[in-house]
């Protein structure tokens, strides 16, 4: 039986990456900002699009988990735990782990962000982007109970937002949205940036079905925090329906949704994967493809449904409306 690393070691790898690069997977800022190449921004109103790096990182999460498991596997292979811990503390640089598959996924995920950009511009929004300086929110450290490390990330991002005169953020994933809306004000003095998820900002009906991927019926998967904490289930459906998508409700939906398993993929990938496979079955029974609105759901359910072979295709809302 393999020996496993402790939580401090696993989170420690991500913390070291965060300190070095501003994100827990150790991707360089330019790569995270690549989606914005050639796009024009106008930050004069103080409104910024904040990606939090989550869609970009989701493309590489599989490689990252493999690297962590290899690190754990090397203990069973005879390398002492002390050495592995030492390696872990140095962080894992993903540049050596990029595969063509991850690169293809990266392009896909960047397309999702570009699509949101286009939708916002079409509805008349003017906004800036922090570019390669954009920092991760630290949400993972908070969720794992590493509060002082989270505080460090929160203060770093807040400093940047203040330096750039940011008054309002338009966010695109439920995790960054909730942490900025509800947790930042508890950890950062006088945090007064207004935070809105794109589903709160964009008018349903302002988007149309994108023909390439949007045929058939979509089983709607409600991301947990989007449904339970942000209360955006109706808005999510309105947006899909008014864009012309056909949707179906799975066995567990809206506030009763079943998690994709993603939040523990870094520390217990096999438990996370088993949960994702269970959700894939539920979504598959509802018919057609599965629709999500979260990068963690997209990558975790996407991988699990592929593993199952018979699982549905998983797409993000921002891939099928345009």
């Amino acid at each position: 039986m393999p020996q496993f690393l402790g939580v401090e070691d696993l989170v420690g790898v991500m913390l070291q990456n965060q300190r070095k690069t501003g994100n827990p997977l150790g991707l360089d800022g330019a790569r995270l900002a690549r989606w914005a190449q050639g796009l024009k921004f106008n930050a004069s109103s103080g409104t910024y699009l904040y990606t939090g790096g989550l869609y970009q990182m989701a493309a590489y999460i599989d490689s990252f988990i493999e690297a962590l498991e290899r690190l754990e596997g090397s203990v069973a292979g005879g390398v002492g735990l002390g050495l592995v811990k030492a390696l872990g503390r140095l962080g894992i640089n993903l540049s050596s782990l990029y595969s063509s598959v991850a690169e293809k996924e990266a392009v896909r995920y960047e397309g999702i962000i570009r699509n949101l950009y286009t939708l916002l511009v079409r509805q008349g929004y003017e906004f800036g982007f922090l570019g390669s300086d954009e920092q991760y929110s630290g949400v993972l450290f908070y969720d794992m109970g590493f509060d002082s490390e989270f505080q460090e990330s929160a203060e770093r991002l807040t400093r940047m937002l203040r330096d750039r005169g940011v008054k309002r953020l338009i966010t695109m994933d439920p995790h960054s949205t909730l942490i900025l809306k509800e947790v930042y004000p508890k950890f950062v003095d006088a945090f007064d940036v207004e935070v809105n998820h794109y589903l709160e900002v964009l008018e349903p009906g302002g988007a149309t079905r994108s023909d390439k991927l949007a045929d058939g019926v979509f089983a709607v998967h409600d991301p947990c925090l989007l449904a339970r904490n942000l209360g955006l289930s109706d808005r999510y459906r309105d947006f899909a329906l008014k864009a012309g998508l056909k949707i179906a409700e799975p066995q567990l939906s809206r506030r009763s949704t079943f998690c994709c398993g993603g939040p523990i993929e870094n520390i217990a990938p096999r438990v996370s994967g088993a949960i994702a496979e269970k959700r894939c079955s539920q979504l598959g029974e509802a018919g057609g493809a599965a629709l999500v609105a979260c990068p963690i759901c997209l990558s975790n359910l996407g991988r699990a449904c592929k593993r199952k072979g018979s699982g549905p295709r998983v797409v993000d809302l921002l891939e099928v409306v345009g």
Partner: peptide, 12 residues
């Protein structure tokens, strides 16, 4: 505790 997803299904 680390296996908790924080999905809030329980709270619901």
């Amino acid at each position: 505790s680390y296996f908790c997803l924080g999905c809030n299904a329980c709270n619901e």
